[in-house]
Every structure is written in structure tokens, then in C-alpha cells.
Amino acid sequence: MPADTSITAPVSIPVPPGRSALTEPTWVRALLIVGALLFLALFLLLPLVAVFAEALRRGFGAYWLALTEPDAVAAIKLTLIVAAVSVPANLLFGVVASWCVAKFDFRGKNLLITLIDLPFSVSPVISGLIYVLLFGMNGFFGSYLRDMGVQIIFAVPGLVLATIFVTFPFVARELIPLMQEQGSDEEEAALVLGASGWQTFWRVTIPNIKWGLLYGVLLCNARAMGEFGAVSVVSGHVRGETNTMPLHVEILYNEYNFVAAFAVASLLAMLALVTLVVKTALEWRFGDELAASRH
């Protein structure tokens, strides 16, 4: 409303000194900024600092030892393997699903969108338990798989499955609105000009969605490495074998090995920070392009 008044009667109502018509008074701004910063410091920065402080309490030697101890190395490796399988799988699925949803009309489209969101609304514990129900010894495929000599849960494939389920929506959720907004005009134009399907995909679609795709992959990766609940259910907690980093942190903590627990936790925190830095750097470097592709 103040905007209207200033347009209709700019002279008769003077703007009070120190206050422009469109902004709040300085003290309100200051209060909001300080409040937000305090909140951030208290709930984000302080715990983060605490993690590193606790991890380095006995010096860098102990920190290094905790990270290079065989069980920790196995946990780090396993986490990387799980992410290396589940992130590309979800990348592939995310692109295919959002392609379907954005470019075509078909029956059950809304159902598909709802299903893609399902892992967001289901508790991670359930996400783990469904695989126990399916592949556990008393599950649907359990005894059959056992006869074939295949172990799914309490082994790496189970961890991968649970992680894929939990991180399922990240890429698709990022791409669907983007691709819907872009429509299929450019693809149609490419086809009319004689490009093949593959060419259209690589030369038109991918360049258009690459930033959204990258976002999705980064988020997906962060969650894949950090997931606790679902993998906890299917892991079996065998040290050096089916323990991912978040599970390893819990075990170490429960063994009163606080320095080692926080050392591994700090590594997880660093992975998250790297993700953030990469994301910010990309935004800063390619900000204009990013904005262009979003609108």
C-alpha cells in the first residue's frame, strides 16, 4: 500500500526521515539480521564447530589414527561404494522420469509424481523394513535367494537398495518443474530441423537441464552418504563389512570412543561442506546461466 500512496500523492505525504517508503526501519532490519545470524550460529555453526573441536581434542595424531583404522577405512569405502552405485542409478531414473512427466501426457501421470515423492513422506525406518520384508529369510524372496546363494539384506546390495529408495526423489524432483516450465518447443524445433532423438537429447535437452541436474545429483549424493535410518535396519551392523560411516559413528560413540566417533563425523560434515562449496561456487561462476535456465 505505501507504494500506491507515494504514487498518487508523492508531495502531500512526506517520507519520514531515515525511512524509505519501501523498507522497514533500520532497527527492524538490524534486529532481523542479528536474529537470523544468531539462530544460524546457535543451531548450525556451533554444533559444527563442536564436532571438529571434539574430533581434534586429542590432537591431530589421534584424529588421523581414528580415520585410518581398518574399520573406519572399511566404513568410508563402503559409503563411497553405496553412493557410487545409488547416485548414478537415481540420476538415470530421475532423467527418465522427469522426461516422461514433462514431455508427455499419459494416464496416471499424477500418480507417478505422487509415487516419486513417496520416499520423502515415508519414515526411513520403514524404507529399510520393506527390504527386510522382501528379501529377509522369511520374506517373499528370502529363501529362494538363499538357495541361489545370494545375500541381499545385511550385505552391500541391501544397503544400496535402501539408499536408492531414500534418495529416489532428489534428481526427479529437481528436474520435473524445470522441464515442465521449459516445455517441449525446443525439442520439437530440433526434430523439425532433422535431428535424431539422441541428438535432440544430448544437444538440446541436456544443456537446458544441466544445472538442475547437477543440483539434484549433489543433494542426492549428500543424502546417500549421510543416510542413517534406512541403512541401519538393513545393515546388520557387522564391523568392517556392512557399516557405513553414519553407522560407524554410532558404534564408536557407543563404545565410549568419542574422539574417533567425532573424527568420522567430521569427515561426514566435511563431505557436506564440500557439497555446499561446490554448489555455491557453481552458482557464483555460472549464476547468469543458471538463472536463465530456470526462467
Binding site: I81, A84, V85, Q151, A155, V156, P157
Partner: peptide, 20 residues
């Protein structure tokens, strides 16, 4: 390349199981 990566990852996963 991505497919190769995926395959490699899966193989590693299965090898991990076999080793156990």
C-alpha cells in the same frame, strides 16, 4: 562412462559379498 561406472560399482558390491 556412467553405465560403466554403474557396472563397476555393482561388481564391486558383489565382490564384497563374495569375499565375505
Amino acid at each position: 562412462r556412467r553405465l560403466t561406472l554403474l557396472a563397476a560399482g555393482l561388481t564391486m558390491a558383489w565382490l564384497g559379498v563374495a569375499a565375505a
